Simulated scan of single mutants.
Amino acid sequence: MTRALILDTETTGLDPATGDRVLEVAAIEVVNLVPSGREFHRVIDPERDVPEEATRVHGFTREMLRGKPVFAQILPELLDFLGDDPVVAHNAPFDFNFLDHEFDRCGVPRIARSRMVDTLALAKTRFPGLPNSLDALCRRYGIDNTMRTSHNALLDVQLLSQVYLELMGGKQPVLGLAERHVAPLATGADGQLRTRTPRPIVPTPEELERHAGFLGKLKDPVWSGFIEG
């Protein structure tokens, strides 16, 4: 089983070194590239103002965030959810840089860069010279992003999980049919995958006799040998 976390943050600005802070963090769990249904989502009081230009991007204002937990309060839950698994983000160095500063404030070790998976870097390798924003990749892969009217961390990770699946090959290795040598699968009325029971078609003696009679009316039929056995 391969577990990873798709993560996104929203912030008060672009540079944590000048005092910008995280105000929203979301992550969803994927197992073998498939979302498991487990998610983490917190809106955070950044303990500072939210510039108007940032509000235009994600919609959060200072007043909306007053009274929300501060980053130090949500950090234990976030660390527990992330565990020791890879963390996937679009333009991941941006999110990791902000998390580094937040972790430093809390006196907690940073997430190792060895765990970072950057889907922007993956997309640039696959589509050099083309637009590779999250919206551009959704359009390229036919992923519906019409509900994305502003940046929202939880919606963004849900879209990114679909993009990540496509970037990694577009198939779900959890099925592993070829490797496991199992019978073909069929979808039942309830939508669940079930093993299909083979149902070979065996002609009756009467059907074979009629078929032989039909072939007898033809001149040198090439498939006459198929009526034997």
Rank of each mutant, 00 (worst) to 15 (best):
M147L: 05
P131E: 08
V174K: 11
A92P: 03
L79P: 01
D20P: 02
V108D: 12
G19D: 06
G59E: 12
E209P: 02
A212P: 01
G107L: 00
M1V: 14
T149M: 11
T204S: 12
P93Y: 07
I44Y: 04
R199D: 06
G191I: 09
E39G: 00
E209A: 08
E52N: 09
A92T: 05
L154Q: 07
L218D: 00
P46G: 00
M168K: 09
R62Y: 15
M64P: 04
D220A: 10
P76H: 15
A72M: 07
V174T: 13
R140S: 10
L75Q: 09
N145C: 10
T9D: 06
E24Y: 01
A178R: 15
V182M: 14
K124D: 10
L130N: 11
L177D: 03
L154C: 07
E53A: 12
T146A: 15
E166M: 15
P131W: 04
I6M: 14
H41S: 11
R48P: 00
R105L: 08
L154S: 04
V57N: 13
H41K: 12
G19A: 04
G67V: 14
H90E: 06
H41A: 12
R180K: 15
M116K: 15
S114C: 08
H151I: 09
L75Y: 04
L134V: 15
P173M: 02
D8A: 04
P131K: 13
D100C: 11
T11G: 02
P69G: 03
E47G: 12
L177Y: 03
H41R: 09
R199N: 11
D190L: 11
L165F: 10
V34L: 08
L79F: 00
N32T: 02
P203D: 13
M1K: 11
T11N: 03
F98W: 02
E47N: 05
F103M: 09
N152P: 07
F94K: 03
L120F: 01
L208G: 09
I6G: 13
T55A: 08
D190I: 15
L160N: 03
F127S: 06
L215S: 00
L165R: 14
G191N: 12
L208M: 12
R66P: 00
G83K: 12
G213Y: 01
G83R: 08
G213M: 03
P184K: 07
F214L: 14
P198Q: 03
S114Y: 12
A54L: 06
K217P: 01
T11M: 04
G59P: 05
R105F: 15
R139Q: 15
L154F: 04
V50E: 07
P93K: 06
A153M: 04
R194D: 06
R21Y: 03
N91Y: 13
L5C: 10
P46M: 01
L159T: 12
L134H: 07
F94H: 04
E39K: 02
R110C: 09
E63H: 13
F60N: 01
E24A: 08
V70T: 06
Q73D: 13
K124C: 10
T119E: 09
Q162L: 14
G129E: 11
P173L: 01
R194P: 04
E77Y: 03
T18L: 10
N32R: 07
R180M: 09
D85W: 07
V57S: 14
P46F: 01
I74C: 09
E166P: 05
